[in-house]
């Protein structure tokens, strides 16, 4: 049973102008890629992927709407409700891993990198952001012993362009046992197209509007495959996602209506 646990915020780390990490007084272990439902009493409850999976649990959040704005107003010592960790995390079986993260999507990839590197695996991470100051967890992954390649939309650091540009170039010269990606869904769809050509099995972590978070309400079920993002996901295999006409194209709002990425059908 996933009971709501109300816990203290131990520490808040300002990662970038728009991203903060909240370390919670909650000693449970999670698998990278799993999520927690975060309740702000009187406000709302949202899914957040776990960015610190061992010891005190941590989440890393981009300020985007009303809920995250309220979350950003909190201080250490304030309380949050947590359900989880829940869902299916990333499954690592290869030795040479490639991570592709865009924006706050690096959050679940950083603990994955740390754990894999601690087990002696080789990790290359492509990290992208709109600009240099919004890059997330570059130091963290490098400190753990990973190789980091950077892209920024404005060219203020690394390659000017997108993670997928760096990915294309990298895969001309190297190959990997597995790829893991998290970020804007259009980016992930492109990553899957590229890694498919190179026959690199890829797992992607999806974001959807959640209600129950425990697999019963049906809000986050993916069209075409009928899989629940909160239960069979949020990480999926490339071959599962390729069967879903929804992946990379649309999501469903709280009413269950299709909302197309980029506003186009």
């Amino acid at each position: 049973m996933h009971e709501m646990q109300v816990v203290k915020i131990k520490k808040i780390i300002k990662e970038t102008k728009r991203i903060k990490t909240f370390i919670l007084d909650l000693d449970v272990s999670a698998i990278p890629g799993q999520f927690v439902m975060v309740w702000l009493p009187g406000v709302d409850e949202k899914p957040m992927s776990v960015s610190y999976t061992k010891g005190d649990l941590g989440i890393t959040v981009l300020r985007l709407g009303d809920f995250t704005r309220r979350l950003f107003e909190l201080s250490p010592g304030d309380m949050l409700g947590i359900r989880g960790p829940m869902g299916r995390g990333f499954k690592v079986y290869g030795d040479k891993l490639l991570l592709v993260g865009g924006g706050v999507g690096v959050a679940p990839l950083a603990p994955l990198a740390e754990e894999a590197l601690a087990e002696g695996k080789e990790v290359t991470a492509i990290i992208g952001a709109i600009t240099k100051s919004e890059l997330l967890f570059v130091d963290r992954i490098e400190k753990a012993g990973g190789r980091v390649l950077i892209s920024t939309d404005d060219g203020s650091a690394g390659k000017k362009g997108f993670t997928t540009d760096v990915l294309r170039e990298l895969l001309e010269e190297e190959t990997f046992d597995q790829c893991f990606t998290c970020g804007p869904e259009i980016m992930m769809a492109k990553v899957l197209d590229i890694t498919r050509e190179k026959k690199i099995p890829t797992q992607a972590s999806l974001h959807r509007y959640f209600k129950c978070g425990i697999g019963i309400c049906g809000q986050c079920v993916l069209d075409g495959i009928g899989l629940r993002v909160c239960k069979e996901g949020p990480t999926f295999r490339d071959k599962e996602l390729r069967k879903s006409p929804e992946f990379g194209r649309y999501w469903r709002n709280a009413a269950g209506q299709k909302i197309y990425f980029g506003g186009k059908k």
């Binding site: 709302d44 129950c212 425990i214 019963i216 009413a255 269950g256």
Partner: peptide
């Protein structure tokens, strides 16, 4: 608005609120 579901001993309490696409 969420939380729309809370687990308790022996069941669930939920208030999704008749969400539907029309």
């Amino acid at each position: 608005r969420n939380p729309t579901v809370v687990e308790i001993n022996g069941g669930l309490i939920s208030a999704i609120g008749l969400a539907n696409p029309g």
